[in-house]
Computed example of a mutant assay.
Amino acid sequence: MANDNPMLPVSDEDWPESIPEMRSGFAGGLNVYRVMAHHPALLKAWSDLREHVVNRTSLGRDRSEVVILRTGVRLGSAYEWAQHVVRARTCGLDDTRIRSMRGSPDQMAPADALLATAVDELLDGAELTPATKARLLAEMGAEGALDLIATVGFYSTLAFILKSFATPLDGDIAAALRADPIDP
């Protein structure tokens, strides 16, 4: 049976000649970016935003992972959920806290509930309510609120790519979750 997915992750052998330096960096390490490599100019442009959202965010690692996990859950992105369960564990989130991202914000710790509520509002209505915006600004400042919004947008775009092209989970993440599953 022929493969009906023309957007499989680009192999090393087929890596675009216009972006050879990206293969050994972040882009070569994850299937989602190997799918984006079908459009080298987009992947190259994506690089600076990714550097900020992933590595330079004012949210910090814990808050960032909470926002990403909630975004992945809300968008039904199994790849993002799996990828960030492993990352969240690496930065110290326990499985109870990680699993809480699947539930109602009123069942979460207050700091996580604020983040999850913000994600939910952005995904449901494309804006923060005045009350959530005021709390975010009071607790995280303008940079934190803007980084949260950028993170939701960034990971929404990745979820659209991942789901549209049925991007397979990276082998190391699949192995980590087989060894230590998150589900009850």
Rank of each mutant, 00 (worst) to 15 (best):
M1G: 15
A2M: 06
N3S: 15
N5V: 04
N5C: 01
M7K: 09
M7Q: 07
L8C: 03
S11Q: 11
S11A: 14
D12H: 11
W15Y: 07
R23Y: 06
R23I: 00
R23P: 01
F26Q: 12
G29T: 09
G29E: 11
L30N: 10
V32Q: 04
Y33W: 13
R34V: 04
V35I: 09
V35L: 06
H39Y: 11
P40E: 07
L42H: 12
L43D: 02
D48L: 08
D48P: 00
R50A: 12
R50P: 00
E51G: 12
H52G: 07
V53I: 14
N55C: 02
R56A: 14
T57G: 10
L59E: 03
S64Q: 15
V67N: 01
T71L: 00
G72S: 02
G72D: 03
V73S: 01
Y79C: 02
W81Q: 12
W81P: 00
A82Q: 10
V85Y: 04
V86E: 11
R87A: 14
T90Q: 13
C91S: 10
D95F: 08
R97I: 02
R99A: 14
R99K: 13
R102F: 06
S104Y: 05
S104K: 13
D106N: 12
Q107D: 15
A109F: 00
A109M: 07
P110S: 08
D112R: 10
A118L: 02
D120F: 02
D120G: 08
D120Q: 12
D120L: 02
L122S: 03
L123C: 04
L123P: 00
L123M: 05
D124S: 15
A126Q: 10
T129N: 10
T129C: 05
P130E: 13
P130T: 09
P130C: 09
T132Y: 07
T132V: 14
T132D: 07
K133D: 14
A134S: 12
A134D: 11
A134G: 08
L136M: 14
L136Y: 04
A138S: 14
M140K: 02
G144Y: 03
L146Y: 09
D147P: 02
L148T: 05
L148Y: 01
A150I: 01
G153P: 04
L158C: 03
L162Q: 13
K163N: 15
F165N: 03
T167E: 05
P168Q: 06
G171F: 04
D172R: 12
A176L: 08
P181H: 07
I182G: 03
D183L: 10
P184M: 04
